[in-house]
């Protein structure tokens, strides 16, 4: 027992001569990988439409419950969030919302430097989060693989879909 205590003291002592693991952050910015998990953005699909379909999975995955949204339906049949709100003063930047997002709408960016004097300014709405591009996934469009028809994509026109069945045919 004593040997182990002495050993741990020795091990700790040796760190006097090892390099610091930390950097002096505001003076010296560390390298952040492009896929670093900072704050979220909402992306658009290749056609420029919102990718978010308001499925609520991000909200339910969120450990501090800081995402809230409401589904609404466009005239073209797409689901879309009527509002999408994230309270960044509660966000822990865990990225579970990105993992949960089935449409690649939520993507994390390396930006995490959000400082405000007023906490109220940490509440971001959809308008603050939407970017104009597709983010990391350039070609993905949820509605091209989903079975729901929207205007401009009828039944049977999605990827890997057969022509709609005509019930009145013989269907042999």
């Amino acid at each position: 027992m004593i040997a182990s205590q002495l050993r741990s003291m020795w091990l700790v002592f040796r760190h006097l001569f090892s390099r610091n693991a930390t950097v002096e952050y505001p003076d010296e910015k560390p390298y952040l990988a492009p896929r670093y998990r900072g704050r979220i953005v909402l992306t658009r699909d290749p056609d420029g439409d919102e990718r978010c379909v308001a499925c609520n999975l991000c909200a339910v995955a969120c450990p501090p419950d800081c995402i809230s949204l409401q589904k609404t339906e466009d005239e073209d049949g797409r689901w879309r969030p009527e509002y999408f709100r994230i309270n960044f003063s509660r966000c822990i930047m865990c990225g579970l919302c990105e993992d949960a997002c089935p449409t690649y709408a939520i993507q994390l960016t390396p930006d995490f430097e959000m400082c405000e004097y007023d906490r109220q300014n940490m509440v971001y709405e959809k308008e603050d989060l939407l970017i104009s591009g597709p983010g990391k996934y350039h070609d993905y469009s949820f509605y091209r693989v989903a079975g729901m028809s929207i205007s401009g994509k009828d039944k049977g026109e999605a990827v890997n879909e057969a022509e709609p069945v005509d019930v009145r045919s013989l269907n042999l």
Binding site: A59, D65, C66, I67, S68, R85, R90, V123
Partner: peptide, 11 residues
């Protein structure tokens, strides 16, 4: 699994 507790009033 109720969600959005810290966000639905936040605005």
């Amino acid at each position: 699994r109720a969600s959005g507790r810290t966000a639905n009033r936040a605005h």
